[in-house]
Simulated assay, not measured.
Amino acid sequence: MATLALVSLCVIIGVISAQQPAPCATPVQLAMRASQYNHEDDVMNRFFIAYDAVNKRKVIFEEENVLMPGRQLHEFLILNNVNIEYDFNMKTKECRKSIPRPWRPFGIPSNATFEDEFYIGGPGEEVFAQDWSDRVPYSRREMWIGTFSLKHCYPIREVLVAGEQVNTSITTNFHDIVDGIPNPGDFIPPPECEQAKWGISTRTYPW
Rank of each mutant, 00 (worst) to 15 (best):
R101Q: 12
P102Y: 05
W103V: 13
R104I: 08
P105M: 05
P105W: 06
F106P: 03
F106M: 14
G107M: 06
G107P: 04
I108W: 00
P109T: 04
P109C: 00
N111L: 03
A112H: 07
E115Q: 08
F118Y: 07
Y119E: 12
I120Y: 03
G122K: 04
G122Q: 07
G122L: 12
P123A: 00
G124I: 00
E125M: 11
E125C: 13
E125H: 14
E126T: 07
V127A: 12
V127W: 04
F128M: 10
Q130Y: 12
D131Q: 15
D131V: 15
W132I: 02
S133L: 01
D134A: 00
D134P: 01
D134N: 07
D134E: 02
R135D: 09
V136G: 03
P137V: 01
Y138W: 09
S139Q: 09
R140G: 07
E142Q: 13
M143T: 14
M143I: 14
I145G: 05
G146I: 00
G146M: 03
T147F: 04
F148A: 03
L150N: 15
K151C: 06
K151V: 11
H152G: 11
H152K: 15
H152R: 10
C153G: 02
C153L: 07
C153H: 11
P155I: 04
I156T: 06
E158K: 02
E158C: 08
V159L: 05
L160M: 05
V161C: 14
V161E: 07
A162C: 04
G163E: 05
E164T: 15
Q165Y: 05
V166N: 13
S169E: 02
S169R: 05
I170E: 02
N173S: 15
N173W: 14
F174K: 04
F174M: 05
F174Y: 09
F174H: 08
H175Q: 10
D176M: 13
V178E: 15
D179I: 06
D179R: 09
I181V: 08
I181K: 00
N183G: 11
N183C: 11
P184E: 12
G185E: 11
D186P: 11
D186A: 12
D186W: 15
F187M: 07
F187S: 04
I188W: 11
P189C: 04
P189S: 02
P189E: 02
P189V: 02
